[in-house]
């Protein structure tokens, strides 16, 4: 079966700084894949290339066809929530539909029924500044989901949250994924987050980013934070940490 996303030999340099150098990865349909790597490795750069940036080398295919021939393949959630201060939550959530040409009231009518599932009931007409960090992230995720694209790109969605809120959000996202089975590529530098959410994890080297290990997470779903304490999960966590701290160990020959 052709994978949904297939990236091969991707390379990119910024003013002589080699950020990506021969990156290969695949994401299957309905699969949740995480990219785990040190900060500054070039993870966001990969998303840049997926969303229209020009690589120096390499190919990106979606369902087997080169990305340039695809229309609107990705729903993207940037590193900070990038909510518009000047739009209400429902206005933010329906932004993607409005940009796609859906009339404003129709876009809002389509988004409104989803507020309950995203824990945002009653906050439709609040401004982002009135919401807590966790709610803002859920609003940003709602904005991403409603675009109804073949694949989600999530760039450290919970990176800016405090530990407790982050754990709550991870659990919530795990439950949401269980129901919707989005095809998703998640960037994170949180090892446990990657284990909790992913079917598969790619470990990246420091810049220039290359895949140093690919790890399957065979833990049964639905998962919760408690499952992270099982021997299987602890073994994966130890392996991920070892490789992150000493990339030579995980080097694929």
């Amino acid at each position: 079966m052709t994978p949904r996303l297939s990236v091969s030999d991707l390379a990119k340099a910024y003013d002589g700084l080699q950020v990506l150098d021969g990156l290969d990865l695949e994401v299957g349909k309905g699969e949740f894949v995480s990219l785990l790597g040190p900060s500054g490795a070039g993870k966001s750069t990969l998303f840049r290339l997926l969303t229209g940036g020009r690589p120096d080398r390499g190919t990106i295919r979606l369902d087997g066809a080169p990305i340039a021939e695809q229309t609107a393949p990705f729903a993207f959630m940037p590193q900070r929530d990038a909510l518009m201060d000047w739009r209400t939550i429902i206005g933010n959530a329906s932004l993607g539909l409005e940009i796609a040409g859906v009339p404003r009231h129709e876009a809002r009518a389509r988004v409104a029924p989803l507020f309950a599932e995203f824990g945002l009931s009653g906050f439709q007409h609040h401004y982002p500044a009135q919401l807590s960090g966790g709610m803002r992230q859920r609003a940003a995720l709602l904005r991403t989901i409603v675009m109804d694209r073949p694949m989600l790109l999530l760039d450290e969605p919970f990176g800016a949250l405090d530990a407790l809120t982050r754990a709550g959000m991870q659990r919530w996202l795990a439950a949401m994924w269980q129901r919707h089975r989005w095809t998703a590529l998640l960037i994170t530098h949180d090892v446990r987050e990657a284990i909790l959410l992913s079917d598969r994890i790619y470990l990246l080297s420091p810049r220039p980013a290359r895949v140093v290990a690919e790890i399957h997470v065979p833990l049964p779903r639905p998962r919760s934070q408690a499952d992270l304490a099982t021997p299987e999960a602890l073994r994966i966590e130890a392996r991920l940490l070892d490789t992150l701290l000493d990339p030579s160990q995980g080097q694929i020959p």
Binding site: R48, T51, G52, A72, F74, A75, F76, P78, Q79, R80, A82, M84, L95, G96, I99, A100, M147
Partner: peptide
């Protein structure tokens, strides 16, 4: 990031 996001939205 906001301009990037809008770009990905088309």
């Amino acid at each position: 990031d906001l301009e990037w996001l809008l770009g990905t939205m088309g």
